[in-house]
Structure formats: structure tokens, C-alpha cells
Write a protein that binds this DNA or RNA. Structure first.
Lengths: 199, 199, 199, 199
DNA sequence: TATGAATGAGACTTCATTCAT
DNA sequence: AATGAATGAAGTCTCATTCAT
């Protein structure tokens, strides 16, 4: 990467950081380009040298945030099979407790709301999710030797997003009492025990 | 209720229906009052005879949708204890499949996003959630005779919102394979089996 | 006057009272018909049975207020010539002190501002002023036997409106110290002493 | 001042000139931003780069006009004591005759009306008035050696605003005949002759 | 590369007035 | 006589985007 390119990349990150900030604080459609420019210490006009329009910034943010979430899932690769449920529970509870959730609530609800109206955003979110699921399903199938790996994967992920969502609706959520049930739930999902096929 | 009051109520519903429509299609902040008025077959100005401002419409929608969600939970009261997990699973899967989810995705993401910036919206959402939890916790404690009813309640609800959320990120979600795991998960959450207290 | 006419007149007064209230509080152009109707305990639509439009209400208010001001000047007719300056001074100071000034500040500034843009309002104000001046000039000429009665009249009235105006710009105005100078000024204006014709 | 700052200042003046124009013609609340923008040869939106809102423009106009009025009073500083009453009379009559009155009628009535509903406007007007009075009182006390300088000052200013006001109510005002009485009045106000303290 | 002045469409909201009842 | 629902134009203000410098 040339010096010019490096500088360009740094400027882009500056804009994205500012944009993420504003999006969290005001939402996609209330965050003005002027405000973003100000926080990125850049003129409004200049942002258009790096992004075609605001939509492109939103897409870039969605992409970056989704990628970061995926990264956080990558660490589960290294976890001992026997400990997977426990570690995942810990991570889920932890991230909720620190409000740095994988699904960083503020931005995430915004993203999911947008994803229903903006096909590009939907594509980005779904692509990253597919990537995470592929990793996790691989883990579940190959390392844990379980069947129906895709379904188990989705059920595991239900717990993550469900928990984040829950905290918004019940801010008094008692994490201390949840943690045991959450581990039990994850263990159940990862249990080889034959399940009567539903429906 | 007088004729005038009935008419007034009907007009208000007209506005709310139109608003819900627009909010689903465009989101809270992209749905213009002009568009809402048009769909409500009413002049923009006249909407202000029924609602102080757009915020009030948003609040009313959030309230109405949350109340409807609560209603859907009310039916669980009548369910046989032994069947609760199965019935809840069925409802969760069903509502997802029919896209009439308790957490009607489109509007719900919007609501949760808003809830982080608008204290009034947060209060409404949390009030309804508390009401649903009180019902469910009562069921779990009194009819099922389980301890930690609040935590189990929250975990049950994690499944509902988590599943809805999942569908947005993975539109190819294989519901047929999920249903068994979901029932197993709910049964696990409602199982009296002692759980090692977490963390 | 028939019963119907009396009732009609009463309703009109109701509107005017409400309008005067609102005009003082919000100004002509910020006082909405809805607010006026509410204070007049009448529906907005019904006001149009008595007044063609808002302009007509403004005109009626200007007329009524000007007439009341004229009435207040009428009492000077009965005053002993020797006491005229003193009594006028007293009235001027009094009305200022009680904020019920002849030129009831709130409404009066509004009226004078309007009078420069609305010929009908101008005509009303000037007609009443002419009436007051005619009375006063007659007093000055016939009872006090002074020359240049019109000019003296205008100078007397300069004191009234000037004082009201002053209070707006200097709310700390020390009336106690003004009163002496005001009497002296009025005496000077009413003094027969030959004045070198100016300019 | 940099070129940018100079340009900015010029643009602001452009807006103020246009606004003053519109305010005189239509009044504060009838003068639309669109009209002001048009006369300032600027887009409506751009005005908001210089002024936070319309209120701010009104405040700026009130400030500018009041400052100009104050300036006009400053010239009296240089006047020979013996000539003060005569010069002030001349200026009062002159400014009335040229309709460039210190209290430029059109705008001034508007300002005084506003001042009763807008505390910021009131503060501005009263601040400038205090400044003018301080100058004049100093003149009266130090150069003319008179007592009760504040009261005399206020009485002098009663003449200015009273005269402007009078012209609105009596457009046929005979200035030629007023001038003598006005000089006499001002002389009387500035006369050292002991006055029986009133009330 | 960088600025920030400038635009103009469109957002929410108010309000005088009309009209069916 | 009386209501108040209803209209729609106009008001203030915001904001994504462009462009001269």
C-alpha cells in the first residue's frame, strides 16, 4: 500500500468512526452529514471524495460492524469442545453486561430495521451472518460430531440476538439468574440426545 | 360512547393504520406526514386534530403494537402446563412463518432502535414487556411450580425475539429443522432440574 | 334593540374580549382563531357569523380600544382650567403606574405597527385621534383662551404616548421623579407666554 | 479580518438589510423567510448558516436598529450646552420630517410590540436605551450642572418617542407649529428652575 | 486533496376559513 | 344559531449534495 493509499484509508476510517458515533446517537436518518463531517474533522464536501453518498457510508458501517461481530465469533474456533457451551454463555453474558454486544444494540437495531428496506444492507448483513454460521456449523459438525449442525447453529445464535434484544425490553434483566439457564440452554442445543423431529 | 366519539376513534384508527403501514415501508423517520395523511385519506393538517405531533403517532403505534403482542401472549394462560413448551414453540414458529411475529420484524426493529433515543418509547415498550413477563412468570411459578420464574420467563422470551431476529439475518432459516431444537430448548428452560448456579 | 339583537351584541363582545386577550398575549398574527374561539367559548366556525374574517376582528378591536381611549380623554372636559395641566399629569402618571395606559402598551404598539400596513386600521386610529384632538383643542382654545390650540394639543398628546413608550424602553423609570417634570412640561405647553416661532 | 470573515460579514449584512426591508413592509411575523431570502439573493436554507432561526434575525435587527439610534444620540455630546434644547428639537423634528426617526416608526412599533412578548428583544432594547440615557444624563448633569439628571433625561426622550408616535396617529401633524412648542418644552425640561416636587 | 458556501427539495407544523350537520 | 371536522396553503427549518476556489 502506497503512502497515499494509507492516508486515504485512514481518512475513510475517520469518517466511519464519526459516522458510527452519530448513527448510535441519532440513528441513520437523523445523523446529518454535517455532524458526521464535524466529528470526522473534515468538511462535508470532502466526505464525497471517499463515499459516493450517505447510503454508501451506511453500507460501509454495516459491513464493518458485521465483520467485527464475525471476528468475535472466530475465537470460538479455538475453544475446547467440552467447554463450548460454557464459553459461549460467558461471552454472551459478558458482551451484554459490557454493552459491547456482538449485536451492539444501538447500531444493530438500526441495521436490522434498515435491512428490510435496503437490499444492499440486507445482502451485507446476510453475507456476514452466513460466514459466521459456516464457521460455527463446521465446529458443531466436525469437532462436536453433531447432526443438524445448521439448525443447532441458528439456535445458538438465537440466544445471542435474543439476549441482546431482551435487555432492551427489560432493562432490569437479572443477568446473574439468567446465566445458569443460558448455559443449560446452550448445552441442550449442543446435546447429541436424539430429539423427536418436530412439526 | 357518543356518535362523535365513535367517529373520532375511527379516524384515529385510520391514522394509526396508515402510519403503521408507512412506518413498515419507510421507517419512522422516512415516513412523511404527507404520505401518512394520504394513506389515511385525510389532509396533513387534520392529523394534528388527533395527534399533537409525529412523535405522538409513533408513541401510539408503539403502544398499539406492544399491546397486540401482549394479547398474543395472553392465550398461553389457557394452555395445559404439560403442553406449554410445545404450544409456545408452535406459536413462535408459526408467527415467524406467517411473518406476523409477536415482534413483527419490520416495525419491531424500528421500535427497538427508537427506544434507545426516545425515553417515552422506551417506557411504553418496557411497560408492555413487564406486563407480559408478569403473566408468564405467574404461569411458570404457580401452574408449573418452578423456581426462578422471572429468569425462566426472560429466557423463554429470548427465544421469541431471538428467532424473529434470526430470520432477518438468515432468511433461508430452515424452520423445519429448528422446531425440534426450539421445543427441546423451551422444555429445558421449563425443566425443574436443578441447575448449577452460573458464572 | 330586540332580544335577538341584544344577544347578538353580547356574543360579539364575547369575541372581542377574547380577541383582545389573545392579541395582548400573542400579538395579532400569533393569536389563532382557534384560541380566540376557545376563550370566547364559541366554535371557530361560529365566529364567522359575526365577523367576516380575522381582519374584521382586528379592526373592531382597534375601534373599541381607540374609543375607550377617547372616553378617558372626555373627562378632561369637566376639569377646571387652572388645574388642567396638573390633572392631565396625574392621569398620565396614574395610567402608566396602573399599566392601564390610554395607550395600553401591549395592544397599542401592535395597533400602531398594524396601522402602517393596514389602511383600514390607520383610518380608525386616526379618526379617533382626530376626535380626541378636537375635544382637547376646543378646551385649550375656548376655555383656556390659548392660540395655536392644535399644536398645543399635539404636544400634550406627545407626553401621553411618549411616557407610555418610555416605560417599555426603561422599565425602571422613576415615576416619582418624573411627575414634577411632567407637570412642569404640561404647564409650559399650556402657558400663554409668547414663544419665538421656531425653525 | 480574513477574506472569508469579510465575505461572511457582508452576507450577514445582506440578510439583515433584506430582513429590515421585509419587517418594515410586512411586520416580523408576516415576513416570510422565503421573502427575506429572495431579497437577500440567497436560498432560504443558506440563511440558517448565518442565523440560528428567525428569532435570531429579529434580535439582530433590533440590536442593529437600536445601535443606530444610539449613534444618532452620540452627536449631542459635541453640542454647546446653551444650544442643547434647540439642537435636540431640530433633530427630533428633522428626523420626523425625514421619516428616518431615531425610532423609525415602522420598525420601532414592531420592536416595542415584540419586546413585550420576547424577553431577549426586551433586553436588547433596554440595554441600548440605558446606554443612551447614560450618555444624556452625563451631559445634563456634568455639562449643564443640573440635578435629577435621570428624570430629565427620560423626559427628553419622552419627547422623541412621543413625537414619532404622534405622527402615526395624526399624519397631518403640523410640524411648523409644533417646533416652537417642542423647543420650549425641551428648554423647560432643561431649566434649572426649582420645581415643586410632585406627588 | 480540501474547504465550506450554497442550493432547493422536502420535512413537520400552523392556521384562516369553509361546510355538512 | 352553532358546531367542529376538514382543508390546503404557507410557514419555519433541515439536510444531502454540489461546486467554485
Amino acid at each position: 500500500m502506497t503512502g497515499g493509499e494509507k492516508r486515504r484509508q485512514a481518512r475513510i476510517e475517520q469518517v466511519l468512526d464519526a459516522a458510527a458515533d452519530c448513527f448510535v446517537e441519532f440513528g441513520f436518518h437523523r445523523a446529518g452529514m454535517a455532524k458526521i463531517a464535524e466529528r470526522a474533522r473534515m468538511s462535508p464536501g470532502h466526505i464525497y471524495h471517499y463515499f459516493e453518498n450517505k447510503e454508501a457510508i451506511i453500507a460501509a458501517i454495516v459491513d464493518r460492524e458485521s465483520a467485527r461481530a464475525a471476528e468475535r465469533f472466530a475465537e470460538f474456533d479455538a475453544v475446547d469442545s467440552a467447554q463450548l457451551a460454557t464459553v459461549m454463555t460467558e461471552r454472551a453474558i459478558e458482551s451484554i453486561a459490557q454493552k459491547t454486544d456482538i449485536l451492539q444494540s444501538a447500531l444493530n437495531m438500526e441495521m436490522l430495521a434498515e435491512c428490510q428496506r435496503n437490499p444492499e444492507v440486507a445482502e451485507i448483513i446476510q453475507r456476514h451472518d452466513r460466514y459466521i454460521r459456516d464457521q460455527l456449523a463446521h465446529l458443531i459438525h466436525d469437532k462436536l460430531g453433531l447432526d443438524r449442525a445448521e439448525a443447532r447453529t441458528d439456535m445458538m445464535m438465537v440466544q445471542f440476538s435474543g439476549l441482546a434484544n431482551r435487555l432492551l425490553r427489560n432493562p432490569d434483566l437479572d443477568l446473574k439468574n439468567i446465566v445458569g439457564l443460558m448455559r443449560q440452554t446452550m448445552l441442550s442445543i449442543l446435546s447429541p440426545a436424539p430429539v423427536t423431529k418436530g412439526e
